[in-house]
Amino acid sequence: MSNRPPTLDEVAQRAGVSTGTASRVINNAQHVSKKARQAVERAVEELGYVPNVAGRSLASQRRGAVVLAISSDDPALFANLFFAEVITGVNAVIEETDLQLMLVLAASERGRDRLARILQSRSADGVMLLALRENDPLSKLADESGVPVVHGGRSLDRTPQWYVDADNRGGARQAVEHLIGVGRQRIATITGQLDLHVGVNRYLGYREALALAGLSDARVAHGDFGEASGAAGMTRLLDEHPDLDAVFVASDAMAAGALRVLHERGRAVPEDIAVVGFNDVVTAQHTQPRLTTVHQPIEALGREMTRMLVRLINGERPTPLILPTELVIRDSA
């Protein structure tokens, strides 16, 4: 018979809880149910489990804070409904814990230096990264910090160990398939930034749908997900491809800009040109006409990122998560 001491995993199994929950009980963490706490305490007594002193010391050094670092230094960021909804989701989960949230805009050198100081001083227990570009220095900075890291979305150069993303490629494909299904054949797109994973995948979804239907994917203008670039892209497409009969736009903000240009040019939507956006932010319901768009669960993305980070901080090993998207048909297509 083995004389080895019981492990934390065995305590968790005996108590019928996750290892992370058992760890929180043993380390006197808050926000553990009375039932779980009693089950763990009973398992500890039955098994004769002795907590690792070094581990408890490490747990006691937690700072009680997490960072949401966004690879942007645009002061208009908070007017972007996508980021506003993500932050709402993050905050909803933070309020269920005893953690504090620090927000860092870290696209500039100054912003990255600020994040580096926070991480190097161990002022945070974990970090969430959002809107990373290809070869974004934030990835390396966070990885080298030694704290748990969760990515909102993926970057083009690597797939992180822990991330929450939406099915951008499948959603874009569904949008274009809808346009094909209602009889459109000269379908253009206004892409997002192609140094972002999300921009590339929405563009690939557009191309896949057209390839499967045997249609041309040559009607392309590039934007940056903002409304002004949607207007500029629509202007370019009308000048270069006046025969187009539909456009898939990679964000609702750009779609709003595109709709404005179509109105100014006297093109009826959807009679002359059908329009589909992506995101389903609240403004999609108030454009003229109301915007057909791909719904992605933006607030849920923020919530799930935060839940994943909390689980990592508590010693659990979550798996990456891809959230489903869904086409919402309104008046524009």
Rank of each mutant, 00 (worst) to 15 (best):
N80W: 14
M308E: 10
M1S: 14
I273C: 04
G146C: 08
A107C: 01
N314C: 09
L312H: 06
S72L: 02
N80I: 10
G226N: 11
V276A: 11
V276T: 14
L179N: 04
I190F: 10
S33H: 03
D217E: 15
S60Y: 05
P5Q: 13
W162Y: 15
R133I: 11
T159P: 03
Q285N: 02
R122D: 03
L130Q: 12
T306Q: 06
R24L: 10
N52T: 04
R303I: 06
A246G: 14
F225R: 15
S23P: 14
G126E: 09
L156A: 10
Q61A: 13
N201V: 01
A258T: 03
A124H: 02
A79K: 15
S57F: 06
G89M: 04
A79D: 14
Q100I: 00
R122K: 15
R158P: 01
L323H: 07
M305N: 05
E299W: 05
A256G: 07
G214A: 07
A246R: 05
A172T: 12
I70A: 13
G20V: 12
V86D: 02
I322M: 14
V150C: 08
T319P: 01
D280T: 06
M254I: 06
R114P: 01
D195S: 14
N314D: 15
L194H: 08
A300D: 13
R186F: 00
V150F: 15
Q185E: 08
F225M: 13
R4E: 12
M305I: 06
R260I: 00
L210E: 06
V261Q: 05
A274F: 02
L312V: 11
R37S: 15
H151M: 07
H197F: 14
E46W: 10
L244F: 01
V276R: 12
A65T: 02
A15E: 05
A107W: 00
Q285P: 00
R290D: 06
A59E: 11
H263Q: 10
R42L: 03
A172W: 04
L194W: 06
L204D: 11
V200I: 11
R290V: 02
E264G: 02
S60E: 09
M1V: 08
G223V: 11
T159Q: 11
L210Y: 07
R42M: 05
D143P: 04
G152W: 04
R267S: 08
I180C: 00
H241Y: 15
R311S: 08
A188F: 05
L129I: 13
L262I: 01
R184M: 00
G205I: 12
T325E: 03
G257C: 08
R267W: 03
I26S: 01
L68F: 09
R260M: 03
L321K: 15
S2F: 09
E304C: 12
H295G: 00
N135P: 03
G16E: 13
Y49S: 04
Y203K: 09
L105I: 02
A211K: 13
L291Q: 14
T19E: 09
Q30P: 12
I322L: 04
G152F: 02
A246Q: 11
G111D: 00
H151Q: 09
S60C: 07
S123G: 15
I94C: 02
R14G: 03
